[in-house]
Structure formats: structure tokens, C-alpha cells
């Protein structure tokens, strides 16, 4: 199977779209998607980490000994997570405050270690960068989608603006944790239905 740049980039949007096709990284999906805005913030932070850790891991793949590869990957990933945390604190403080503990928790997001182990450690740098960016943006879109759904139903607003009709009663179940599970489950079901041939 030939690997091309566009193919590696676009597979993140459907073929292995996290968290729906690749059921990984569920913790942030459940935790930060009360608002669509939080979803975008979390997604972009993850994309940043994914892109750079993929590039670095791919470029170091020949010098990292097999036996300590996971430790080395985690150190690299953790470094980028702290960088993104500091940068968000410095430049996007309000969104950093909302995401709180979930920014440092990107370290243990399975998608990132998964891409490092499954893709970046075996492929050239440019393909790894495309893969990281694609998967990251796919993740961002998924979080944005789940976030929008929950915000519209749970608060009756979208990106902070009221959009529902006046007599609309917010379905507050959607903004609680169980609502997140139900929402994710239904979306997974729909996506499985679509992708089933």
C-alpha cells in the first residue's frame, strides 16, 4: 500500500477519526465538552502536542533503543504538553482556566502515544507530521461536534450565543457526566451505522 502525504493527512478525518472510529482519548471527550469552545481549545492543544511529538519521535526513531522507546516517547510527549500548558497560560488564559487539569492530562491521552508507537516510530518525518496534524484536527472536529451538541441541548446556546427559541427549556442532563456518555454512545452508534457497508 503506497503512502502519500494527503492520504496520511485525510485518514484522521474519517478512516481512523478519534474518538469515533479509533475509540481512544475518551477522557477529554467526556470531560471538557460542556461547551463547543472548550472542545476546540482542548482539540487544538492536543493537535499541537501530537504534531510536534510525532515529528520529534519520527526524527529520533533510529537512535532511540527499542527497549526504552516508551520512556523516551513519554518524556518527549510530556515536554510538549508542558510547553502547550505554559503557552496557553501566557496567551489564552481564560480557556486555560476552563480546561484546568485536563491540559496536563494530555500526557496520558492514548491517541498521542498510540500515534507515536503505531505510526511515527515507523515512518518518515513528513508523513508523521501529516498523520499527527490529520489525527489532531480530526480529534478537534469531533470534540467541537460533541461540544456543540451538548451546549445546544444543555444550555440552549452555541459558542456562548443563545440560539434556541424563547420557550426552549435547557436539557440540563446533557451537561452532566451521564449526558456525555449518552451523547458519545449515540454518536458512536450513528457512525457505526454509516460506516457499516
Amino acid at each position: 500500500m503506497e503512502k502519500t502525504l494527503t492520504k496520511e493527512f485525510t485518514k484522521g478525518f474519517w478512516e481512523i477519526l478519534p474518538p469515533f472510529r479509533l475509540v481512544l482519548g475518551l477522557c477529554p471527550v467526556l470531560a471538557v465538552t460542556k461547551y463547543a469552545e472548550n472542545g476546540i481549545g482542548m482539540g487544538l492543544a492536543t493537535t499541537f502536542v501530537l504534531l510536534f511529538s510525532n515529528i520529534i519521535i519520527s526524527s529520533l526513531k533510529s537512535i532511540i533503543p527499542k527497549k526504552v522507546r516508551i520512556a523516551a516517547y513519554i518524556v518527549i510527549i510530556a515536554t510538549f504538553v508542558v510547553i502547550v500548558e505554559l503557552l496557553m497560560q501566557a496567551f489564552f488564559f481564560p480557556i486555560y482556566e476552563k480546561l484546568g487539569i485536563f491540559i496536563p492530562l494530555i500526557v496520558v491521552n492514548c491517541i498521542i502515544l498510540g500515534r507515536a508507537e503505531a505510526f511515527a516510530s515507523k515512518n518518515p518525518i513528513y508523513l508523521s507530521a501529516a498523520d499527527g496534524l490529520g489525527v489532531g484536527l480530526g480529534f478537534t472536529l469531533s470534540l467541537f461536534f460533541v461540544g456543540s451538541l451538548r451546549e445546544i441541548l444543555g444550555y440552549g446556546s452555541f459558542l456562548g450565543m443563545d440560539i434556541m427559541w424563547e420557550t426552549f427549556k435547557p436539557f440540563s442532563f446533557m451537561i452532566e457526566a451521564p449526558g456525555a456518555f449518552v451523547c458519545l454512545g449515540l454518536l458512536l452508534a450513528v457512525i457505526n451505522l454509516i460506516s457499516k457497508k
Binding site: 520512556a71 523516551a72 518524556v75 518527549i76 515536554t79 510547553i83 505554559l86
Partner: peptide
Amino acid sequence: VLSAITAVCGFLLASIKTGT
């Protein structure tokens, strides 16, 4: 290799920390 990676990462983080 592990020491080198951690050293570089540590240095990078320290400089970004002071910068921000």
C-alpha cells in the same frame, strides 16, 4: 540516549518557563 533526551527536554522547558 534517555539522559540526552531528558536533558534536552529539561533545558527546553526551563527556557520556555523563563520566557513566559
